[in-house]
């Protein structure tokens, strides 16, 4: 008895020293491992120009009717995110049922565990690499962006959908079954209507993320606002960088607001 309390006392009293040493070691390891190149001489000047560009954006770039202006490209970015999320929401449903554990199944079920692993793999596969692979297939442009968003989003949507299925209320399914409904009836009349609001809410949430990623996919040539942004940064055209940054900030904020208010109504 006293032995145990002594032991607990020991870890409670000196446990933090152990963790402290680990943390200190980690930081020393990281700080010595990184090569801090130091700031460029032009760093101050460049950041001054960026801030200056943010306050003096090139308004003429906003819309000039050429289709290569900010407004058209922002719409294109939204279109990539919208279409990509739509396709991935449909593709995610089979993955979700594949990865979801049925209520009576144990922790390690071959189907559900392998399904979850596939989803982890899709989620970790960098979206940029996916975009470059699709550019090889369909050529540079926003279609490659749509495909990259569609495939990459399956990783997260499949996981969220699967968790929704695992946690859903099975009462209505049982009701249909006991009334003599077939498996298809059960799925169509009980499972889908029960999880639909959650599916939609997660899809909207993913759309918010897709808008952010669609705005940078252009940096590898997959359409949207990213291409002119990277170009403007490389040519040091700071007033153009300024207006594009403003455009992205306004776009993301608006989409977050709209999608957030719809999601509040859904759940």
């Amino acid at each position: 008895m006293t032995e145990i309390s002594k032991k607990q006392n020991f870890t409670a009293r000196y446990g933090w020293i152990f963790w402290g040493i680990i943390v200190v070691f980690l930081y020393i390891w990281s700080l010595t491992g990184l090569q801090f190149s130091g700031l460029q001489e032009s760093a101050g000047e460049v950041s001054k120009s960026i801030i200056n560009g943010l306050f003096h954006p090139e308004w003429s770039y906003f819309y000039d009717g050429s289709g290569e202006d900010l407004f058209s490209l922002i719409i294109q970015t939204l279109a990539i995110a919208f279409l990509g999320t739509f396709v991935s929401a449909i593709l995610s449903v089979p993955f979700a049922f594949f990865a979801a554990r049925a209520p009576k199944e144990g922790k390690f079920h071959p189907r559900s565990t392998s399904g979850k692993f596939v989803l982890v793999f899709i989620r970790t596969f960098p979206e940029l690499v996916l975009a470059i692979m699709f550019i090889k297939a369909v050529g540079p442009g926003s279609f490659a962006g749509v495909l990259a968003v569609s495939i990459h989003s399956i990783g997260m949507l499949g996981k969220l959908f699967g968790e929704a299925i695992e946690n859903m209320d099975r009462g209505s399914e049982e009701a249909i079954q006991s009334a003599g409904g077939s498996k298809a009836d059960m799925w169509l009349l009980a499972t889908m209507p029960t999880i639909m609001p959650e599916f939609l809410s997660y899809t909207l949430y993913r759309f918010e993320i897709a808008v952010r990623s669609a705005s940078i996919l252009g940096m590898v040539g997959a359409g949207g606002i990213g291409t002119p942004l990277l170009f403007a940064i490389q040519t040091r055209n700071w007033s153009r960088v300024g207006i594009i940054l403003l455009g992205i900030i306004v776009m993301v904020t608006l989409i977050d607001l709209i999608s957030g208010s719809i999601r509040k109504k859904l759940v």
Binding site: S37, L39, Q40, V46, I50, R236
Partner: peptide, 8 residues
Amino acid sequence: AVVGIGST
């Protein structure tokens, strides 16, 4: 663009 290429 600001601090240059590298892990910084």
